[in-house]
Amino acid sequence: MSNIPSELKYTSSHEWARLEEDGSVTIGITDHAQGLLGDVVFIELPEVDTEIEAGAEAGVVESVKAASDIYVPLSGTIIAVNENLMEKPEIVNSDPYGEGWMFCIQPLDEEDLNELMDADDYAEQVASEEH
C-alpha cells in the first residue's frame, strides 16, 4: 500500500500540495506515482519566476520506464525549485513527500487549494486504480 499523508492535498494526476506557513504551496508527486513510475532518472523543472496556470504542465519526471508530466494544481508564480533533484532524481523514489519535493508556488488565491482532493478521496482513487 502506498503512503498518503492526511495533512496534504492531492490531484487526480498524482501530485501532492502542502500549504506552508508563509502562504506558499509546495508541490511534489505522490508515493503511489513514484511507485508506478519506478526508478526516476531525470527531472525537468520549471524556471523560478514563471507565472503558471492551474492544470498547465510544469515539468517532466522520467523514469527508466516512462515519462510523466507534472501538472500545476493551482495558478500562481514559481518561487523555488528543488535543484537537488537535478543531481539526485532518485530522491523522488525514496522520499516523495520530503526531500523529493519538486517546486514551490506562490498561489494567486490560496482558496484554490480547497478545490483539490483530501487524503481520503485520493486514497479512494488510488484503490480504484489498483483494482
Binding site: G38, D39, V41, V64, K65, N93
Partner: peptide
C-alpha cells in the same frame, strides 16, 4: 515480475 524493488 517487472522488478523486485529497484530495476536499476
Amino acid at each position: 515480475p517487472i522488478h523486485y524493488g529497484s530495476q536499476i
